[in-house]
Simulated assay, not measured.
Amino acid sequence: MIVVTGATGTVGGHVARLLCADHPTRLLGRSLSRLRAVVPAADVVTADFADQSSLERALEGARALFAVTANPLEPAHDAHLLAAARTAGVQHVVKLSALAVTDDRADDLITNWQRENEDRVRASGLAWTLLRPRSFMSNTLSWARSVRAHHTVATPQPQSRNASVDPRDVAEAAVIALTTAGHEQQEYALTGPQAISPAEQCEHLAQVLARPVRCVEISLERAYTAWAQHYPQPIARALLDSARRQGDGAKQGVDPTLARLLGRPATTYRAWATDHAHRFS
């Protein structure tokens, strides 16, 4: 049995659907209805990261765990999940982290939280695999409403490049690590096949949609104000720090690891945009 956390999220949902097709899989979360919407026939169980005993019950009988946590303001969630995994006899944890942990210049809340999570995984006594993706191509879905209504994307630093990755590729790599041997005690940098800027992404969207998509630059200060309206201030500040590092070129390195794991080239942004064109129309 493989247990998937974060199944209602972007990568976790893809992992759940891939695993459930061929492997005994259990989806763990707080809402049965939301979990069942991911894979209607899946084995689903409710648990709360704040309640270790509920996690122990959810992990009973599991051989492997795909671990996704989402709240850097609650570091105890990861501690509870790993402790429950040990108690339940889980053998292998595949943890979704972030490539920013390898950047010495990254000292923001989210990156330091991920570093601490990785340290916990290494110290857990379990077999582990760390997945470190760059930013997800699907983050550009936040532009969809503006593209539909105004044919416009407003973004800071539109010429800065990021080797963003298709979350479906990350999910496929996770399934490989969860279901095949040889990935224990490995750290995988997962990037797309090229570094691409927001302006270039808008060009691809325009071509896919066959209509103009205008990229408009906004200041980092304006972007921070928008983030602060949706996230707690420490998280908004971390997003600002991350954006500044992208502007300094920290996120444009392309790594061949993902293509090696998948046995094929990593998905391009153009291919991702083509598959998701309906979301922008």
Rank of each mutant, 00 (worst) to 15 (best):
A64G: 11
G12L: 06
H23W: 10
N117P: 01
I196H: 13
Q114D: 06
P40R: 15
L126S: 03
A7H: 12
H23Q: 06
A236Y: 12
D22M: 01
A16K: 11
W113K: 00
R214E: 15
W128E: 02
A64E: 12
A250P: 02
R214A: 11
A236T: 04
T69C: 02
L205N: 10
V45Y: 09
S138M: 07
V45R: 14
V45A: 14
L141Q: 09
V101I: 15
A173W: 04
P24C: 07
V38M: 13
R211C: 11
A238P: 08
R63H: 14
V170N: 05
N139R: 09
T225C: 13
H230P: 00
E184V: 01
R63S: 09
L126D: 02
A238G: 09
H92Q: 10
V94C: 04
D107S: 05
S242W: 06
I110E: 10
W143M: 03
I110H: 13
A199C: 05
Y269M: 09
T102C: 04
S135M: 07
P256W: 02
L35R: 14
R122T: 04
A41E: 14
A173N: 05
D108E: 13
Q114K: 12
A223I: 03
A42T: 11
P40T: 10
T155I: 12
P232E: 15
E118W: 13
G247R: 09
R244P: 02
P193L: 01
A177M: 05
I218T: 15
P158T: 03
W128T: 00
T87K: 10
Y269V: 00
A58L: 03
H278P: 01
G263W: 07
L261V: 04
Q185R: 15
L81R: 01
R36M: 01
T25Q: 06
D108A: 05
A123V: 07
R34P: 04
Q246T: 01
G6Q: 13
A41D: 11
L27Y: 03
S219K: 06
R244W: 08
T152F: 02
A144L: 05
G125F: 07
V147Q: 05
H150K: 03
L209Q: 14
S33T: 11
A266L: 02
R270E: 14
Q157R: 15
A273M: 10
S53F: 09
Q233E: 15
H183L: 00
R211M: 11
T274H: 15
A37E: 07
A206N: 15
S53E: 07
H276C: 05
T111L: 04
T129N: 14
L209W: 14
R57K: 10
G247N: 04
T191E: 00
H92E: 07
A42V: 10
R34S: 11
D43I: 02
A238D: 07
I176Q: 14
T155V: 13
R214N: 11
D48A: 09
A174H: 12
G13C: 06
Q114S: 03
L130S: 11
C202Y: 12
L19R: 02
M137H: 09
L65P: 00
A50L: 13
